[in-house]
Design a protein around this nucleic acid. Structure first.
Length: 218
DNA sequence: ATCCCGAGGG
DNA sequence: CCCTCTGGAT
C-alpha cells in the first residue's frame, strides 16, 4: 500500500505556505478545522505584520483576531498564538524549539502540530496523526487503535523512521482527495484491491469519480 | 447538512 | 470520555 501511495502522490508535501519554523508553527495552529487554502490566504498579511515571537506576544488582540478571523476558532487561535509566542520568549529565548518534548509544552501546540513543525521545518521525522491519518490507518487495517498516540507508535513500528514525514503526507493527500470520512471514492481508489474497507463508499467508478476532490484544494 | 491536516477543558 | 470553539466551502 505504501508503494502505491508513493506512486499516486509522488509530490505530496505540506500545503501550508511558510518560510520559517515560527511561520509554520503559526500556520499549523491556524489550520485546525480549516482548509490550508484558507490559511494561506491570511498568512501573507499576518507574517508581514508579525515577524518575531515578541511581535505576536505584544500584539493587539483585536487586531490579530481580525486578520485570522476567516480561519475560524479565531479567539481560541489568537489565545494559542499569543500564549505560544509568550512562552517562546519566556522559556526558549525567542526561538522555536526543535524537539517534540519542548514543542508540546507550548500553549495551543499539541502532538499533531508539533510533528508537522518537526517534519517540515526541522527535517526531524514525525508521524502526523490527524483526522485523515486516524481514519485511513483504521480502514487499511494497519492498527485497531483509536488513540492518536497509540496509532503513532503502531505505525512507527511498521514504517522506517526516514519515511514517517512523507508517509504522513501520503495519508493526508489520499484522505483529502479520495478516502473521505463520508462516501469515500472507492470506485476510483488505487488501493481498492488491497483495502479491507473497500465498499465503504461507492464502488462504481463513474459515481466515485464525482466524489474526488482535487483542484481547489491543491 | 457536513466537513476542513486540533487543542484544551470538564 | 465528552464538549466547546468558529468561519467558509460545497
Amino acid at each position: 500500500m505504501t508503494r502505491i501511495l508513493a506512486e499516486t502522490y509522488p509530490d505530496a508535501h505540506c500545503e501550508l505556505d511558510f518560510g520559517t519554523p515560527l511561520e509554520l508553527l503559526v500556520a499549523t495552529i491556524l489550520s485546525a478545522q480549516c482548509t490550508d487554502k484558507r490559511v494561506n490566504l491570511v498568512t501573507p498579511v499576518l507574517f508581514a505584520k508579525y515577524r518575531t515571537p515578541a511581535d505576536y506576544a505584544g500584539a493587539d488582540r483585536a487586531e490579530l483576531e481580525e486578520i485570522i478571523r476567516s480561519t475560524g476558532f479565531f479567539r481560541a487561535k489568537t489565545n494559542s498564538i499569543m500564549g505560544m509566542a509568550q512562552a517562546l520568549c519566556d522559556r526558549y529565548g525567542g526561538e522555536v524549539p526543535g524537539k517534540l518534548k519542548d514543542l508540546v509544552t507550548l500553549p495551543g501546540v499539541g502532538r499533531k502540530t508539533a510533528n508537522v513543525v518537526l517534519g517540515n521545518a526541522f527535517d526531524v521525522p514525525g508521524i502526523t496523526v490527524d483526522t485523515h491519518f486516524q481514519r485511513l490507518t483504521r480502514r487499511f487495517g494497519w492498527t485497531t487503535e483509536v488513540d492518536p498516540v497509540k496509532i503513532e507508535h503502531a505505525v512507527g513500528d511498521l514504517i522506517p523512521k526516514s519515511e514517517w514525514t512523507q508517509m504522513s503526507h501520503y495519508m493526508i493527500w489520499h484522505g483529502r482527495r479520495i478516502c473521505h470520512a463520508r462516501r469515500p471514492a472507492c470506485g476510483v481508489c488505487p488501493l481498492a484491491s488491497l483495502c479491507p474497507a473497500y465498499g465503504e463508499g461507492p464502488t462504481d467508478p463513474a459515481q466515485a469519480a464525482k466524489l474526488v476532490r482535487s483542484g481547489p484544494f491543491s
